[in-house]
Nucleic acid binder design. Structure first.
Length: 846
RNA sequence: GGGCGCGUAGCUCAGCGGAAGAGCAACGGCCUUACAAGCCGUCGGUCGCAGGUUCGAAUCCUGCCGCGCCCA
């Protein structure tokens, strides 16, 4: 035990010991019943961890440490999510390169020291290598932070969502979905981001207010013009019908007839469909392929032709579409061929003004438009061949199964279940899993080519399981040779990668080594806990439940714990901007890891919490207090062995242990329910009371100033209480708890048994009032002395206590301790008529 | 527009049917032999607003206002 205990340096010292001793190593001989397994969120490796990560990962660690002390073999791996667009973008900016899949691999390529102004095109393989290099560096820094933060992770069970094993597992799971018909390929209208040139899924959409303008435009019928209103006049050449509500009397005569489009003179039918809104615009809409999701619905349900005019790069087709047949129409198309959507709109509006087919003023309007959450241009809808996984968006039976899984899962807090149910009920299509990107898990299929060299899409070729992971753009399917690539009668590889969630949804399988080490998998799956943010219930949580349901017919985990957000105080008050960036490592160094963990532990499950340096200071004080209190108690002279509770003969001591028993019960129940905040609160509250009142009360007796029995009773109680308190704090304050435990106990506190109420059971019944009255009276003495501006240690002539008879009776049991702690010479006990406790002290002794 | 959550002391938050709480801050003390990175004490609130249920409401119900998240 050091002379002057300090918190400085505890993190490095104990982190090294834990690593050397394998304190948190998973015992893989354990059976499933003995295991507590955690499906840790793999942080996205695209930059740095922030305070919010420290916050929520600490919550998980507290639970893991608690379960470990309860005797569970804890499976607590850490993964890195380094697969997907954020990494691609970071690599592009960091190295100044871009992926050009047509280029050959250059094994000698090294990126420039500093990224140049012009991005250097590199092959897909070079690009992926750069992704791996950069993420490896980031991951080192992340691991160092987590170790410093005290996460009790078993680092030998790490994974990357882009590593070969994860790719193989991801592809295997996908191919098994294909085999069972749970995944399928389909040519369909798809939401498309023109910047990233990739399809996006429903889960990646967000609505944003976008300014547009209503244009009133004339279509021409046999009996005169029909006016429609549209915000997208550039889609006139893509128009396949005009549509009004079947009950709309204004358009009854037109249903079944045809009209001709302005400028391009294409004949389209006028049709009825209930999705047309009578109150909106003119009540009759142009259906184009495709302006929005309603167009898709009409196109599908009314069996309309596909007249796509927008390319995947967001520009209009260069060639004149064959459905534009009139000479004037074809000339007008020349004006917009190859133009961006924006330019095409301007030119078409100008032409409409010329021809007089644009009627009245253009009226600005702001309305919600769908964006890719990472994009900055509105999504277009294009027809393309994509892979989908059935998720209940199209089949009620699957949806009901997913709802049942949601009810089966235990949610913490419970109300988070609604978000899941709302999402499942609102699904409107299957899960689109193919992406037209480079850095990801390749879609593991090839397609045969017919005699003309055209793709035969409905007969995908799949790899042998042993060959996984495969890259179809370089690997060759079974039964073919490399020379047959992209030649008639040969094959072509699917160029796409899987949605990042298609791999992330398999984290329990990846961490547990499903299909790689099935023995391990059987010991950890289904897992116990998924901790995660509430914002990704619709994506990560839902997709993980789905994949597990499809592959294993079970939930992936029994419990989901949803953590809240960290609210940046600056963001609340938008006017203020501090400008000083707080890095997690800086905080850990400034306050100590235990102090930062203390702040995190104060955030109730699921509740957004303010970033609060004040709480970190408080946490530091608590850690310091634990050092000092431990030092004091050990200095009094207590035994390190199992405390001899038969020596606890003094009523005050029995009452203390009884109160601590309640604390153990409450803290245990709270942690069993994943409520670390309540567990900490009750422990902390008791601990301050223990230090401020109990320690002061028994100090003299423990030093042996009275009789031997009293001394032994105090020492046994102090030892028992300290052993319990150090362990109660261990999950939240792992470093300082380990430090003080090491002063007198063998082994790691983190492998010690969680406190059990039986280790506090004394032979005789305890009277809690002895402790509460003694505490009240000592408080009264302090108050009285404080009012007289006396030192607490000043000895006074007399103490008078007025109280109810029962309270006085209890007080007598602890009177010697109270007298010693309060430094009073004479004591007078007076029965009070109203039962209220009144403490008065006399003058200081001379 | 719908779902969910939240409005309690200057600040951060507990409490969620039986006398308004904690910590921080502020203020006043104590140089107390574990701890001045300590200790003691004091101040401070129509529990968002309006109704209702109840012997009793911060707590349950209804409506409204404000904030946040998710989804249309």
């Amino acid at each position: 035990m050091p002379e002057k205990p300090t918190l400085d340096g505890l993190e490095d010292r104990w982190a090294r010991v834990w690593e050397d001793e394998g304190t948190y190593a998973f015992d893989r001989s354990a059976t499933r019943e003995q295991v507590f397994s955690v499906d840790t969120p793999p942080p996205t490796v695209s930059g740095s961890l922030h305070v919010g990560h420290v916050f929520s990962y600490t919550h998980t660690d507290i639970v893991a440490r608690f379960q470990r002390m309860r005797g569970k073999k804890v499976f607590y791996p850490m993964g890195w999510d380094d697969n997907g667009l954020p990494t691609e973008r970071r690599v592009q900016n960091f190295y100044g390169v871009r992926c050009e899949p047509s280029l050959p691999y250059d094994p000698d390529f090294t990126p420039p020291e500093k990224p140049g102004k012009q991005q250097i095109p590199v092959s897909r393989k070079n690009f992926v290598e750069l992704c791996e290099t950069l993420t490896a560096e980031d991951e080192k820094a992340f691991e160092a932070l987590w170790r410093r933060n005290g996460l009790s992770v078993d680092w030998s069970h790490g994974y990357q969502t882009i590593d070969a094993r994860a790719r193989a597992i991801s592809q295997r799971a996908f191919l098994r979905n294909v085999e069972r018909g749970q995944a399928y390929v389909s040519m369909a209208p798809t939401l498309w981001d023109v910047t990233f040139r990739t399809a996006v899924a429903q889960a990646e959409l967000e609505d944003r207010e976008h300014t547009g303008a209503w244009h009133r435009i004339a279509y021409h019928g046999a009996s005169g013009p029909t006016y429609i209103e549209t915000t997208r006049p550039e889609l006139i050449p893509a128009c396949v019908a005009l549509i009004a509500h079947p009950d709309d009397e204004r358009y009854q005569p037109l249903f079944g007839t045809t009209v001709r489009s302005p400028l391009f003179d294409v004949e389209v039918p006028v049709l009825a469909h209930p999705a047309a809104e009578m109150e909106r615009g003119a009540g009759i809409a142009m259906c184009c392929t495709f302006g929005d999701l309603t167009d898709v619905q009409w196109w599908r349900e009314l069996d309309l032709p596909n007249r796509t005019v927008i390319n995947r790069d967001g520009r209009l087709l260069r060639d004149t579409p064959d459905w534009i047949t009139s000479e004037a129409g074809r000339q007008r198309w020349e004006q917009v061929a190859g133009a961006t959507v924006h330019t095409a709109k301007e030119r078409i509006v100008a032409m409409l003004q010329e021809t007089g087919e644009l009627v009245g003023d253009v009226r600005p309007v702001t309305r919600p438009v769908k964006f890719y959450e990472k994009g900055d241009k509105p999504l277009e809808i294009v027809s393309s061949r994509q892979w989908y996984i059935r998720n209940g968006g199209r089949e009620a039976s699957v949806r009901d199964e997913m709802l049942a899984r949601g009810r089966e899962l235990r949610w913490h807090p419970e109300y988070m279940r609604h978000r899941y149910e709302d999402w499942v009920r609102g699904l409107n299509g299957d899960w689109l899993v193919s992406r037209q990107r480079f850095f990801g898990v390749p879609v593991p299929v090839w397609y045969p080519l017919d005699g003309e060299g055209e793709v035969i899409p409905d007969k995908p070729l799949t790899p042998d399981d042993a060959a996984l992971p495969v890259d179809p753009t370089t690997d060759v399917p079974p039964g073919y040779t490399a020379e047959q690539r992209d030649v008639p009668g040969g094959f072509t590889g699917d160029p796409d990668v899987l949605d990042t969630w298609a791999t992330s949804s398999l984290t329990p399988q990846i961490a547990g080594l499903w299909s790689v080490d099935d023995d391990l998998f059987a010991r950890v799956f289904p897992m116990d806990l998924r901790p995660q943010g509430h914002d990704i219930i619709r994506t990560w949580l839902f997709s993980t439940v789905l994949r597990s349901h499809l592959e294993h017919d079970s939930l992936p985990w029994a419990h989901a714990a949803l953590s809240g957000w960290i609210l940046d105080p600056d963001r609340k008050k938008m006017s203020k901007s501090k400008g000083n960036v707080v890095t997690p490592m800086g905080l850990l160094e400034e306050f100590g890891s235990d102090a930062v963990r203390y702040w995190a532990a104060g955030g109730r499950p699921g509740v957004d919490t303010a970033f609060d340096r004040g709480q970190m200071k408080v946490g530091r004080r608590l850690a310091m207090k634990l050092l000092n209190a431990s030092k004091f108690i050990l200095g009094v002279g207590v035994d390190a062995g199992e405390p001899d509770l038969s020596a606890v003969s003094t009523p005050l001591d029995r009452a203390l242990l009884a109160r601590l028993t309640e604390v153990v019960e409450k803290a245990t129940a709270a942690l069993d329910d994943y409520d670390y905040a309540v567990a900490l609160e009750v422990t902390e509250q008791f601990f301050w009371f223990f230090c401020d009142d109990y320690l002061e009360l028994v100090k003299s007796r423990a030093y042996g100033e009275f009789d031997e029995a009293g001394r032994d009773s105090a020492r046994a109680t102090l030892a028992a209480a300290l052993r319990v308190l150090q362990r109660l704090f261990a999950p939240v304050l792992p470093f300082v708890a380990e430090e003080v435990w090491s002063w007198w106990q063998e082994g790691s506190v983190h492998l010690a048994a969680w406190p059990d109420i039986h280790e506090l059971a004394t032979s005789a019944e305890a009277d809690p009032q002895v402790l509460s009255v003694a505490s009240d009276v000592i408080g009264g003495i302090r108050r009285a002395k404080s009012e007289q501006k006396l030192s607490i240690r000043t000895e006074v002539e007399s103490l008078s206590v007025q109280a109810a008879p029962a309270a006085l009776e209890a007080l007598r049991e602890a009177l010697a301790d109270v007298r010693a702690a309060g430094r009073v010479r004479d004591v007078e006990l007076v029965v009070s008529s109203d039962g209220e406790l009144v403490t008065t002290v006399g003058a200081p002794t001379a």
